[in-house]
Amino acid sequence: MEIKKTVIAGTLESSDIQITLSPATGDNLEIELESDVLNQFGNQIKKVITETLQKFQITKVHVKAIDQGALDCVIRARTITAVQRALGQTEPAWEEL
């Protein structure tokens, strides 16, 4: 599946992460991550985002993530919300949670 509009979830506050999904420029998942702990946790953050997107079968999207030290559960929750906004789903996706 492919994301066709731009959506944002999350904030820039401490311990949160702001996820912006927008149409991909290439043919796959692109993740642009900004974080103070990029060297320590960059790969882990990208992994959580990628896995969450995969659960929704999203293969083509540009992700911009601005991390302020979010835990994995927060990263997952913000990604799910962003996807649901992009897909126009209003019911919580319980099985993904």
Binding site: I8, T11, L12, E13
Partner: peptide
Amino acid sequence: FNQIVSALQS
């Protein structure tokens, strides 16, 4: 600052 920018963005 981050709270304000966040709120303006949303």
